[in-house]
Design a protein around this nucleic acid. Structure first.
Lengths: 215, 215, 215, 215
DNA sequence: AATGAATGAGAATTCATTCAT
DNA sequence: GATGAATGAATTCTCATTCAT
């Protein structure tokens, strides 16, 4: 995190910062890391190429900064959901989390694309660190939901916690992918589904989970 | 499929074909499509640059040929599993399919990487066509298992078929990813698991599914 | 002329020879000499690349053979016109020659294109020799017409012969170019003219020449 | 004209601009458009390959810029002749124009070669547009001379204007070609003629024209 | 006589990064 | 602090010619 951004950037008026970050996010979300072009970024946001190199050490620095920013937004969103549903039943919280997830990536598709990049594009700088951090956050999030559910007796206590989390995480992730990766989902057609359909599908899926997991 | 490969290539001795396809697969599995380098391929397999262009129309042609080859191998493997377990119970077949999948990608990690590429790398040539084909195959495979399971009374008949397939597919896919994408799985540590552990985890997951789905 | 074609070629059945020459002429007429592609020729006429190199020493050999063939066709055509109009008046012969020229290049545009190539494309092999030969033929042709015209008292005898030939040649050549080089002629629009219009324009031009040259 | 050159180039010191344009003009005049090599240009003028691509979008851009520059120089030269001879007799102006033309292409042979390129090299970018522009300029130039000559009673009024222009243009063009295209002119040997001889030949030709055209 | 696989130099273009102004 | 010109190695793809079969 150190060395990725320079004070020159942080001293910039916020509007300018935003313009630059927008251009960078757009480019990184659109192409693979190596294919993303600094040239395109600078001409998209109308600054000189040299300037960008005064704000960030190099391309890698730009990427890391943009990525960290994106992650913290995701984090904030999900944590809010967790807090707002603190008292509710486990399966309800699951549904609401899923819905919030879909909502988020529909509003910020480029951030979600960034995440997909590091999932499967080796050669993203510090991929391992970034990926582990994100994955860990997801696991922790679901883990805390599950533990609370078990404590309240809403979930069977005899199941290995890790396996339950794995299953939930798999479903969660895939559901989001299905709603936004083109040509990916050939069974539920989530990509073109409106909110009502999304809710229905979530209901069905959580229904099955309930049969499998509920105490 | 037409126009991707030239007869020049097919007339080559098999050993040479293999050497070339190996180099190409390695490169495409390693980098994003655009980043994959024809230069690297030719020096990896020790042929002249011009020669590769006698075998294939262009980079895209190489990719499509390699990809189609890879898909047909996967297909063959899974179809064999289906046939060999034709008489068995649904959840057993599921376990065996998963196991066969893990086994396949452990023996052919680069093929699996190729699949991951087209999942999330826009800019892969004919991505939509390729992806849809693969996804559809997976859905059909699981679909036929499910329908037979329902017919035999092993699975609840009241669940929407598509949703069940979606769930199984999600789990299937994620399980494979967890076993071979580095730094991806932070809950079950499948990447480093030996076969015994894999079997155990599969057992646990299918156990949960059984509770949710069994009639 | 030696060394351009090999006996292997001349022993070929005529139909095959023709097919090959056709493909070569088409390619050389279409592109600059260096840009013309042996690959394109062989795939256009359906023979192996190696075969072409058994018929001709190299690309240059193909070109020279095709060119010589083309020139002899032109020569034959014009000589026939000269013979058939042997007894007629100078300006009539001029008109008929022009008409025959237009007719020839409309029927054999690729041959005319070949000629244009060597006119202005440096880097055509043996360009100087080929061009001089063609130019000399044209000058001789017009020269013999002029001398006969002078002898018969149809043309002023006080004019320098070379200058007269130069003028006629210029007009002749330009007229042909105007009828077949796209976008070249912006005054008479000869490119799109039908035969009647061509005759009219020829009549007008020769009319002016008559005023300037007639005795 | 737009998009061919970049401000980067125009901001360069004039000497450097000239060096680059010189190298480009030399290359384009020497070879066919497709055969002309950007590599050769950059090593001829001692800049990096990447730099040239900062100055121009692509090879086509370089060509168009060089061509437009060349055309405007020709235009300027001829317009000056027209103005300087405004009051003089038609046939005198014709002679002076021809002389100025010969003088120009002897001082700028590469510019004239560029013109010849687009005349007969299909495959030059925007050939039609460029060629039409040049041809139209020539026709307009001669047309204005002719119309003034007719108005002053120096030229027969009964001749179709277009045909007269066509004839003059043909002669004009061919005369210039004869003086600078190697091996082209086999009758007057203009290529090796000194200025005195050129003047004589021009005199003779215009003499004939006078007989044909003068009122 | 015919084939067609092999070659490697050369083509145009893009790129992240540096540095003098 | 901001600029943008300069770089040269990298990219994909084409080509005429050779030669063993």
């Amino acid at each position: 995190m150190v060395d990725t951004v320079r004070s020159t950037f942080l001293n910039l008026p916020e509007a300018k910062q935003e313009k630059i970050l927008d251009a960078a996010l757009a480019e990184f979300a659109d192409k693979s890391y190596e294919q993303a072009s600094v040239n395109v970024m600078v001409s998209a946001c109308g600054i000189a190429k040299g300037s960008l190199y005064q704000y960030f050490k190099d391309k890698k620095g730009i990427f890391l900064y943009v990525f960290d920013l994106a992650v913290s937004r995701v984090r904030r969103t999900l944590v809010k959901v967790k807090e707002e549903t603190a008292g509710e039943e486990f399966f309800t919280r699951l549904e609401k989390s899923l819905l919030a997830g879909v909502d988020f990536i529909r509003r910020h598709p480029r951030i979600y694309n960034l995440y997909l990049k590091i999932l499967f594009d080796q050669r993203v700088p510090e991929r391992e660190r970034l990926l582990t951090a994100v994955r860990r956050f997801a696991a922790d999030y679901l883990g805390s939901l599950v533990r609370q559910g078990v404590a309240r007796g809403e979930i069977r206590a005899d199941l290995p916690e890790h396996t339950v989390i794995f299953l939930l995480d798999a479903l969660f992730d895939r559901f989001l992918q299905a709603t936004c990766v083109p040509a990916f989902d050939v069974t539920l057609n989530l990509e073109k589904a409106d909110e009502r359909e999304i809710r229905e599908r979530i209901g069905e899926l959580v229904g099955i989970l309930r049969s499998g997991l509920a105490a």
